[in-house]
Design a protein around this nucleic acid. Structure first.
Length: 434
DNA sequence: AGAGATGATTCTTA
DNA sequence: TAAGAATCATCTCT
């Protein structure tokens, strides 16, 4: 409305004074002659029309209708109409030009990208299977993940469907409204100056309005996906106890390395593979185990004995096999045997360590430490010379001597053989061997 | 249902 | 950055 009054004022104030309007526009000559007629008469005519236009909105509908009709029949109407059209087109163009250069909304781009990545928008690609797979991997890769995975996919598909239905609805509504407005404007263009470009501009405005609604839809869809994802990922918190076999494997390792229960990365990977859990789960398990063992050693005594017996038995089998091999093969090349659940990385090391148990040499690596603990067990078995008890008869095989005075294990980087090559306080079997 | 066990998370520390 | 420590949340057993 302001524009219109401004335009009218321009017409009244500039054109009527006999000068051309800005942009070189001039009133065309009156269609019905009057050339050479006095300027005052013309001014009077235009002034009349403008006055009527200005006041038309203040009048009642009937009055306005009557006036509109009179205006339409006015002889100056076509001239005024074309001028108004020209001015409107000009202002419309300037507004449009300013708006068309708008860069794409970064937020909208983010939303679009996310919806595309999650498989909500764009072509169907398994409903964000990548996200689900990532989450599944994070949760440990157990068989239950497939169930959670499909659940996630089903929910995502649901979101996708709702999103597309809503989007379609919005688009349909947008189109309907646009058509309606265009028809209305075309209709009105017969009575008031509306250029095609102005109609175009209006369509643009409508589309922008609707795209803001679409943005809201996209935003809420993204939120729904985020919630779904967080819930799915939170499933990690829903812990499941490890299988009995896995716990056994971990315990075996823990108690056979009680002097230094810090598995190397390689050992962790091996354990993870054997237990069908992740490396971080192995780390968690050892972290928990160490601290809980330390806090209540008495409680774990029985468990320790149990696993010591187990390890000893398997180690004894390994020794038997090794001895047999020694007899049949060259003594310098013992076949690498398997000691229970854990393969000895190098049986040669084992024998070397056995030979140097009373000396000071040790393996400076984690592997060395592992071998050392196996050797501890072997020594125990050998020393028992057949009189090995099952450890449950009150004969304590383990003692908490591997914990130092500060309540911590010996230096994690230092294998037990360093501080106690001859069964010092740090050794697992300090109380049973010798 | 409650207690204890256990896997995971978070914060602190060396 | 890994380990310790505390804590949470859930599972399992009684």
């Amino acid at each position: 409305m302001d524009d219109q009054s401004r335009m009218l004022q321009t017409l009244a104030g500039v054109n009527l004074a006999g000068h051309s309007v800005q942009g070189g526009m001039a009133l065309p000559p009156p269609p019905h002659g009057h050339e050479g007629a006095d300027g005052d008469g013309r001014k009077q005519d235009i002034g009349d029309i403008l006055h009527q236009i200005m006041t038309i909105t203040d009048q009642s509908l009937d009055e306005a209708q009557a006036k509109k009709h009179a205006l339409n029949c006015h002889r100056m109407k076509p001239a005024l109409f074309s001028v108004l059209c020209e001015i409107k087109e000009k202002t419309g163009l300037s507004i449009r030009g300013a708006q068309e250069e708008d860069p794409p909304d970064p937020q909208l781009m983010r939303l679009d990208n996310m919806l595309l990545a999650e498989g909500v928008s764009g072509p169907e690609k398994g409903g964000g299977s990548a996200a689900a797979a990532a989450a599944a991997a994070a949760s440990g890769g157990s068989s239950d993940n497939s169930i959670e995975h499909s659940d996630y996919r089903a929910k995502l598909t649901q979101i996708r469907q709702i999103y597309h239905t809503e989007l379609e609805k919005y688009e349909q509504a947008c189109n309907e409204f646009t058509t309606h407005v265009m028809n209305l404007l075309r209709e009105q263009s017969r009575t008031r100056p509306i250029s095609p470009k102005e109609i175009e501009r209006m369509v643009g405005i409508i589309h922008r309005k609707f795209s803001s609604i679409q943005m809201q839809l996209k935003q809420s869809t993204c939120e729904a996906v985020m919630i779904l994802r967080s819930r799915f990922l939170d499933a990690r918190r829903k812990r499941r106890n490890f299988s009995k076999q896995a716990t056994e494997i971990l315990n075996e390792y823990f108690y056979s390395h009680l002097s230094n229960p810090y598995p190397s990365e390689e050992a962790k990977e091996e354990l993870a593979k054997k237990c069908s859990i992740t490396v971080s789960q192995v780390s968690n398990w050892f972290g928990n185990k160490r601290i809980r063992y330390k806090k209540n050693i008495g409680k774990f005594q029985e468990e320790a004995n149990l696993y010591a017996a187990k390890t000893a038995v398997t180690a004894a089998h390994a020794v038997a096999a090794a001895v047999q091999n020694n007899q049949t093969n060259s003594p310098t090349t013992p076949t690498s045997g398997s000691s229970g659940s854990f393969n000895l990385p190098n049986s040669g090391d084992m024998f070397m360590n056995m030979q140097s148990l009373n000396g000071d040499s040790y393996q400076g690596s984690q592997v060395g430490a592992n071998v050392q603990s196996q050797v501890d067990t072997l020594r125990h078995v050998i020393n028992q010379t057949g009189g090995y008890s099952d450890g449950l008869g009150g004969n304590s095989l383990y003692s908490p001597h591997n914990l130092n005075a500060n309540g911590g294990w010996q230096d994690a980087t230092t294998p037990s053989s360093v501080t106690s090559p001859t069964e010092g306080p740090g050794s697992v079997h300090s109380d049973t061997s010798n």
